[in-house]
Structures are given as C-alpha cells and as structure tokens.
Design a protein around this nucleic acid. Sequence first.
DNA 1: CATGGTCAAGTGGCA
DNA 2: TGCCACTTGACCATG
Length: 320
Amino acid sequence: MINNSKNKYGYACINMKLAYPQEFDDQPKDVERIYTGRTMIKRIFERDGVDRASELTLANVKDLDKIMDWNILNGFDFYRMTSGIAPWKSEYAWTDLKDLDNIKVYLRSIGVKATTHRVRVTTHPGPFNVLTSPRESVVENCIKDLSEHGDLFDFMGFGHTPYNKINIHLGGAYGDKEAAMDRFCKNFEKLPSNVKSRLTVENDDKASMYSVQDLYDGIYKRIGIPIVFDYHHHRFCDGGLSEREAFELATSTWGDITPVVHYSESMAKEQNNAKIKPQAHSNLVYDRINTYDKQVDVMIEAKYKELAVEHYLHKYGESL
DNA sequence: CATGGTCAAGTGGCA
DNA sequence: TGCCACTTGACCATG
C-alpha cells in the first residue's frame, strides 16, 4: 500500500460505517457510534461550561484514535480530520480543560500512528475563518480558530509544513478582490508560525469569488502559501483557465510537498434532479480523476465518505 | 425512544 | 428580507 509514486485518495471527517453502524447489515449490532463531531449548542455550553467541553473533546479524540486505527488497518493513507474536535475552543484556553493531559496523550498517539504508517492528515477549518475581512473582530476570531488547529497538529507531533495542511477559503470579496487579498496577506503575518507554515488556500465555487489564477497572483506570489485545486469549484469559477491549466498552476505552488487536490461531483447529476443546486456534492464519484501525470493526493469530497473512496478504487484501482 | 426543529461565528447568492 | 450553502450533521426538547 505504501508507494510514494502513487496518488493517495482520502475522505473527510466521517467514517460512514463507524459513525452509522446501524445503517449497514455487515456491521455489528448494538455498538457505539464512533465519530468525532460531538458538540453542544450555546445554551448548553453556558449551562455546563468548559468541563463539558473537556469531556466532549476527550470523547472526540478517543474516537479519532479509533478512526486512525481503522484507516491504517484498511490501507487508507489520506484523511481530513474534523475542525470540530474541541467544541467552543475559541472561548477557553487548552489549560482550562480538566482532561487536557489525557487528551494530549491521545493526540500524540494518533500523530505517531499517522506518521509511522504514512497517513497524511489534514484539516479544513470552516467558513467563519475570514482573513480577508475588514472587520478586526472577524480577523481576531479567525486567528483564534486557526491557532487551535495549529496547536492540535503540534500536539500530534506534525511538522511545520503544508504536508499537514490547514486549508481555508479567502471567504469574502467585498466587491474588491484586490483590496481583500491585500488584507489577507497583511493578516497572514499576524498568525502564529504553527499556522503560517501549514496554511493553504482553495479556489471558490462562485464566479465572483477567487479562482486559481486570483490566488496565484494575489496570494501565492506575495506570501508563498500553496494553492489547493478543487476540480468541482473550478467549473463555477475558472478565472479564464482550462482545468489542466488551473491544475498545473495550483500544483506548481507546493515545492517539495505533494500537492493536495479536492475532487467531487454534482449531486444534481447523480440524482438526475435539476432542482438540486449544482454545487452540492454527490454520494459517490464516477468519473476517472485526471491528475495529468502528476503525483498528487486526492481528497474525495463525497457524501458517502470512505465508501466513495472504496467505490472509486474498486472501479479504477487496477489502472491507477 | 423516535422525530423534528434548531443550532456561534461570515459572506454571497438566490427566491 | 430571509434562507441556504459552505468544512462536518449533531443536539435537544417534545411527543
């Protein structure tokens, strides 16, 4: 399975059979769900406080450890972990968690397993991370959220490179992409080094937003962080480039690190239902992914998660 | 115990 | 103006 000359194929956050075992006939009955998305709504956080957050975080990292074991056992060598491991982390410090020692033991163990078995682990913090914002408070919140991810990867013992990437979108254009990208680059300098060294940016799926060409000219040329190419998004925002041109431009920004690309297909097409938004992701993917003879790691963004990767590899694996 | 309504944050797009 | 989508559905109160 370990072959550095081959592309890796990964899935994001949820392992379907571990998270929803009752949905599958071949899974044991009466087993606990294994998932890493435990959280709470604001009211409960205000009622139960940081101790509850600590318990949820511990439960999440315990299950992340089980998912990592599953990945290793099943030959999955590329995985995006959830950005919600530690609920409400923006509201407290790591040292406020009563279970921090235990949590760190699990994270370190997960990281050692990942490194030993060459499972590439990445993360993709959410749409509230807007480094282009003209509002100082928004940028501050973004720095807090990204710092959490940098700390987590440090706890896991990962290096300071985009091999373990922290990937975000630019998040806003405000009718002036140039000015917004200028703010992004200035705010980038405010990030801690454990984030700066791992941060990547991804092309958007709206024509008014950021294409690969925009990111290359406005971000990569100035601060040198790599671009994640998303095939599906490119269809809605091509910046004047063909798929091959955008793929090659984005993957040229990674230096010695194997680039990551994101692949998904349209739910509207899969379900043959024009009412579904074309941007929505399909359950499985069906087309051959063209990686243009370049070694890349492909994150398959499909609703059926690891099952979609298995389906793809079963369909095309022999010719990869 | 199942189900449905609701849920922190930012932004843009659509009905 | 209000809802949806996006990284990921999950939580919680009601019946």
